[in-house]
Amino acid sequence: MSAQRRLRRIVAAAVLAVAVTAGVASCSLLGGNSNVPVATAKPATGTDGAANFDGGYVSAGSGAKKVDLWFDPMCPVCGAFEKSNGATLANAVTDGSITLRLHPLTFLDRASNGTGYSTRASAALVCVAVHDPERTLDYYQALFADQPEENSSGLTDKQLAKLATDHGITDISGCIDRSGPYQAWAQANTAHSQSGPITVDGKKVLDNIQGTPTVLVDGKQYTGSISDEKEFASFLAG
């Protein structure tokens, strides 16, 4: 690793640490859009496996309590939230307490050197949701376990497919090759997240999504520290 890249990582980590400590951290949806690949396929619709395209999410679990999480696969604050609270959410999915609805966004395509990483990773998650729905949460967790940093090229399509098979998930390489409708769906979700309104189960809950992660539990937004496990667990238990 070059000295310049090491310095960028140190600075980025320091900025993230301050933001997380402040408890108001999020990745902003505002910013340039140069050199961002635009999906041209018709967005997927309807439902398929664990993907609810009309609802704008892929899901895990079947509990009565609904948790909605808007995220970008390259957002470092989303990674920090997953590190602190991912186990809490996963346990609640496993014990039947919640349905976790994951809303992938793609605004950080602008930070992946023109590779459209956020769009491609979101589409790969959809591939798992469609072809191995019981492993949707496992793949979501894998995307953050070794998350690429902002302003890198992210994982290649081949690496995204290998991420699935490395975790015992079905081979999604063919799906990734044909994932244009899923990419277009994720990009359409992102556009809608900024224009709004944001509805959950037919009820308006927010004007728009202002940053990621945005987390709602039964339509109520979590505004506490993303790094305070006890605070989030208490909010989730409600």
Rank of each mutant, 00 (worst) to 15 (best):
R5V: 14
A64K: 04
C78V: 01
L160K: 03
G32H: 15
M74C: 02
N91Y: 07
R101M: 02
E150I: 10
T119R: 05
A13Y: 10
G46W: 10
L125T: 05
K220P: 02
V217A: 08
K203V: 06
L137N: 04
T119H: 05
V217N: 06
L30F: 12
G180V: 01
E82A: 05
S122H: 05
V15A: 14
P181W: 03
G219T: 03
N189C: 11
G168Q: 06
A60E: 07
K220R: 03
P104W: 12
G116N: 10
T165S: 09
T45S: 15
V58L: 12
Y117R: 02
Q159N: 14
G46S: 12
S62N: 12
G49E: 14
K158H: 07
T199K: 15
L29G: 06
A186L: 10
S26L: 12
I198C: 01
D95V: 07
A51G: 06
V18D: 06
A142G: 00
A188N: 05
T45C: 10
Y139Q: 00
T47V: 15
V126E: 07
Y140M: 09
P133A: 05
Q183D: 13
G211M: 03
Q187S: 06
D207P: 09
P76M: 05
V58H: 04
L236A: 01
I226F: 02
G174V: 12
A233S: 07
A129V: 07
N85T: 06
D218R: 11
G55K: 06
A184H: 03
F232G: 03
G86H: 08
F235G: 06
L69A: 06
A124W: 01
A25V: 13
P104K: 07
T88L: 08
D48W: 00
A13V: 08
G211E: 01
S179V: 01
V126L: 14
S62M: 04
G79D: 10
V15F: 14
A237P: 05
T47Q: 15
K42D: 14
T214V: 01
S84K: 06
R101E: 02
G63D: 02
L102D: 00
A39I: 03
P181Q: 06
S118P: 09
K42E: 15
T199W: 10
A41G: 08
P104R: 07
G224S: 08
A44D: 12
M74K: 11
A188G: 01
D132Q: 04
S112A: 11
T40Y: 12
S118E: 03
R6C: 00
K203Y: 00
A3R: 15
A64T: 07
K162H: 12
I226A: 02
G23Y: 12
N189T: 09
D72W: 00
S84V: 00
Q194Y: 03
L100F: 11
S118G: 09
D68L: 05
K66T: 13
V67N: 04
Y139I: 02
S34H: 15
A186W: 01
T47I: 14
A44C: 12
N91I: 02
V58P: 01
G55W: 02
V200M: 13
R6N: 11
A191H: 13
D109A: 05
C175E: 01
L16R: 14
P148A: 12
A3M: 15
A41E: 09
T214S: 13
C78T: 01
